[in-house]
Amino acid sequence: MPAPIAAIRSLMEYTKHDTSKTIHEFNEEAVKVASHLKESLNNSISISAGCDIFMRRTTKLALGDVMECKQSLLKELDEFLDEAKDYRNIVAKIGSQFIRDGHTILVHSYSRAILSLLKKAADQNKRFRVYVTESRPDCSGIKTAQELRSLDIPTKVILDTAVGYIIEKVDLVLVGAEGVVENGGLINKVGTYQLAIVAKEAKKPLYALTESYKFVRLYPLNQYDLPSTNPALLTFEDCDNDNDDDIQNGASEKNALKDTSSSLESQIQLQNPTLDYTPPEYITFLFTNLGVMTPSGVSDELIKFYYV
């Protein structure tokens, strides 16, 4: 379940158990719950996108009987969630048009939207090859490679540092998104930005796949402008967490890293951001359930959704 949807669901659950007597009180409580939800997670960005949608709906509530309002809110959100289930398919459908027979595609990290898009394209009997970046530190690219292999799509995993080497062979680059910010920039797994820079320099199109519930009301100006209330977002996350069971290929590598990191960590300060911000000028198009849009279209949609 995508994080924004999960956030909405949990807020809906809260709404069911809420005992507020007035709408105003409910609104205030909901704000508190939402902020608590955001703070409790390392990666607050996609959560906050979901919270924003929820809050937007609650503030729109007409004044009246609390129970009725809550019921209508829940109903509304249920409908929204039903609709949202289909978003990823819509994105895949829209995006698969951009993949042609014989293409070579570079994919970063793990994204369910990308996987469904590639599956869609494969179902359309398009033949293409995929390069997947390993995407350290959690090596989520390997997970992507495994899933692609199960779909019989020829896939190769490359080092994150090999992007520049491979870019010449690539026809297009696909990335997912944790969140899409107001200017159309992306917040995504670390490495996206440098991939985007390389792609732009090589004049390869970079498409970002996102559902519209990932649009988040943030406007970062640089990498350090992401919400830093939660310092864990950009602080070092140990490489040697071994909770990721489904990575077999990377395991040995991880062990090696474990050794080095444990020995190094005492001597060298490491910095390990998990996310980075890709400015809108590096993004060719965004494939969303609202259609294919340029980065500036995101802002227009957000303005329409939130302000009016």
């Binding site: 200017n183 406007y219 500036s296 303005i303 329409k304």
Partner: peptide, 23 residues
Amino acid sequence: ISVIITDVGLIPTTSIPVVVREY
């Protein structure tokens, strides 16, 4: 210009027509 800080929030320069229209 990277961003315009307005009373309707932070918007990119490309969104001015939208703001003008919606408001």
